[in-house]
Design a protein around this nucleic acid. Sequence first.
RNA 1: GCGGCCGUAGCUCAGUGGAUAGAGCGCUUCCCUCCGGAGGAAGAGGUCGUGGGUUCGAGUCCCACCGGCCGUGCCA
Length: 603
Amino acid sequence: MLRNRLTNLIRSAVESLIASGMLPSEARVPVEITDTKTRDHGDFACNFALTATKKAGIPPRQIGVMLKQVLESSSGEASSPIATVEIAGPGFLNIHLKPEAVAAYVDTVLDMGNSLANLAAQSFEGQKLPKLNVEFVSVNPNGPITVGSARGAVFGDVLCRVFAAAGYPVDREYYINDGVNSKQMRLFAESVQSYALGLPLPENGYQGDYVKDVAEEVSRLFGRDASRKEPVGWWQERSQELMLERQRQDLATFEVGFDRWFSEQSMHESGLVTDSLEKLKANGSADSECYRTEVVREGKEATLEQKPEECGPLWLRATKFGDDKDRVLLRSDGRPAYIAGDVAYMESKLGQRGYEKAIIILGPDHHGYIPRMNAVCQALGYPQERFEIIIFQIVRFVKDGKPAPMRKRDGNIYELRDLIDEIGANSSPTADKAEQQRIGKDVSRFFYLMRSHETHMDFDIDLATKQNDENPVFYVQYAHARICSVIAKAESAGFVRDDNNPTDAALLTHETELALIMKILDLPIEVARCAKDYGVHRLTTYAIELARTYHHFYDACRVVQPEEPALTLARLNLCHAARTGLRAVFTLLGVSAPERMDRETAS
RNA sequence: GCGGCCGUAGCUCAGUGGAUAGAGCGCUUCCCUCCGGAGGAAGAGGUCGUGGGUUCGAGUCCCACCGGCCGUGCCA
């Protein structure tokens, strides 16, 4: 919007200088509008003169002078938002905007309403955006959603919300590792069975309350005596189903949802696994020749060596596609290796179901996976650009200032649901369960999202559960509650926003008013950037900044003033616009927008 | 060994190759005749791990080193 207009203005100014011969055509470098750090540097800055100086062969300040002339000569026209241009430092153009041009955007924001974030799509205009499949979480159905996997869950969730706002068609998917031959799933089933029937736990069996929960649920649903007679396969099916249900519930509480829960086993049954392996054999990427290829490194030299191997397994020749070693697809006895499912799954996404790009979000223990999966992608004949793995880094849990194991005192795994419940109970002891979960969800989501997914993160459990004032989500939500309160106050004084009765936005001239408008307008730009570089944590920073900008405005400008009805209405509109902006970020972050916040006073 | 990530204020961390490096918490002051004080204003606090390089310009990009965390399977 505002930035686009400025970019276009400067671009055409450059063109006119080139047309009149004052700039050589080589000077046609991209125009970039940047933020300024202080008010002294204007509302926006442009570094064109600095970036173009070399190609133009003209000193930066001289280019600046020419641009200033062109831009200011047209600033008298009503369509130009530019008031003045200054040349500063080595050759920055500091652009000062007309206050009324900024103020006019309040109406734009109000018109957009809930779809404000969708303006991000403007940054991708003219681009064909690929149809995306984003797979994330995908925790094995033999364990709960832990506080560790929760990081990937919120990250993936918000990333998908951002993609959608930016205009990408996107489907979210959860991969269920439910292969019937899985040893781990069998052991899990046996463990559940032991708990349910009071038998001794198998060696290395699964322990913990969640296993007991599943066991009790099986007994409740099917009867202890009836289930006693059932074979392990029956237990496997039931315990897997119930475990998945628990995961689904926890994710729902966390406001993370999926378009599709995709079963690994279904691909074995439908023949897709076999078909995909045949495809690899047919195109020469897989064979059962009697050798094994490995990359051998000596210093910086790397060579491919073929080593003798007993005949039998079906090999994916992954080394052809940059992997370190070839991978077994079918074991010597004909049973598929795990990666066979991955091959079929890739084929399902990029082939069968026609997604133009598949993204997988994985934890830090998976980066050995990247070259392997890239090889799978290429072996199936798909270009590398159509597949991407995003790794989020580890969450380290800290308690009492020391690294803490991911288990609670009673030895149970720290589940996401425990975290949500603890935060909610501590911050609002007397609220009902649903309200506590809402608070726990808001705080934990925000906490996870504050850090970049690609950096390590210390999760201080004491901090998150006890000292809630330190969590900025309350600061941000308070701004929203405050706006609601002001709007209610205005209403009781007889001031109501009315689309049919336009207000005079030009009355908004105070520096904090203009700063607030410009901050709201930044939202679509932030969203577009997130869609490009996946840095969704910046949305939390943005939310805090927007809240702060509102508090500044609130402090400096009184909204409800019966003796100034026109100004009151103009400021009321600004409040609505700010609330629109806050709600838009909240929606992206999956954080609620409470209209009032009542602190429980600790006695 | 190989690979990934990190090192910025006392603590937890932001920071798009741009000008005087920011925020929250903590610390020291101040501000309700006023729409919610979960707020605002001011102050103290920094060799951006070290050393080179790239360029008009580096916390940001490249290389080396130091320090920390993690991963490295014919497992699923």
